[in-house]
């Protein structure tokens, strides 16, 4: 009696997972996160059953988008009143609320589900590495990242840079300095269409 109760509790338990969104694609991460929210990682999965888990996502501020997406990917909104349509680029949304991109990515992937709001309530998003202690104590597992986090030039030590093998030599009269970032103009500066700031 008590034994069965306790065993059933163990099978149906709701576990907590944590995910580091640092330099990860929000859309590909959301694919994986949604799997855990729905409970599809469990062999006891059923679409009617509510056996999804909690997922804590941190470093959403440092999420990475491919190509032009920061500029071209738009979030739309309509207040259902006349003239109530508005849109904003991903970078604007991200500036306003650093967790919104990740939240929207997960929400839009949950299309057609009646339990959408319940599942979104189990998704906890934090922009940086500061997570409340009571949430962190609940966590019992980590979801693997979707992309390799590349090592930036700043992360290499001077020694490593010096010791890295030189694969080729620049020609003698090659102007290397013109390609340095400091000497380059801002993307929009060379155009006359200054109003086109999307």
């Amino acid at each position: 009696m008590a034994n069965n109760r306790v065993l059933q509790w163990a099978v149906m338990a709701r576990t907590w997972w944590i995910y580091d969104a640092n330099l990860q694609c929000p859309f590909r991460s959301s694919e994986r996160i949604i799997t855990y929210l729905k409970g599809k990682h469990k062999p006891i999965y059923h679409p009617f059953a509510d056996i999804g888990d909690h997922v804590v996502v941190f470093n959403t501020r440092h999420v990475a988008m491919r190509g032009n997406f920061w500029r071209t990917f738009k979030h739309f909104n309509h207040t259902r009143y006349a003239g109530g349509f508005s849109q904003a680029s991903a970078w604007r949304v991200h500036e306003m609320d650093p967790t919104r991109i990740m939240e929207k990515a997960c929400y839009q992937r949950l299309s057609g589900l009646p339990m959408k709001k319940t599942l979104m309530a189990r998704l906890h998003l934090y922009p940086d590495e500061e997570i409340p202690q009571e949430i962190l104590e609940n966590v019992s597992g980590q979801i693997r990242q979707v992309q390799v986090v590349p090592k930036k030039l700043e992360d290499y030590t001077e020694e490593e840079i010096q010791n890295f093998p030189r694969l080729f030599e620049w020609p003698e009269n090659y102007d290397v300095e013109s390609y340095q970032r400091e000497n380059q103009q801002e993307p929009d500066q060379h155009t006359t269409k200054k109003w086109r700031l999307d």
Binding site: V6, T15, E134, S140
Partner: peptide, 28 residues
């Protein structure tokens, strides 16, 4: 352990004798 600060908390406790696991069970 999972969800320690929630209502749906789950703990698995194992009993060791001479550092050998003799039994384990879950609980709220």
């Amino acid at each position: 352990k999972s969800g320690s600060n929630t209502m749906m908390s789950l703990y698995w406790v194992g009993i060791y004798s001479n550092k050998q696991l003799i039994s384990k069970a879950p609980g709220e």
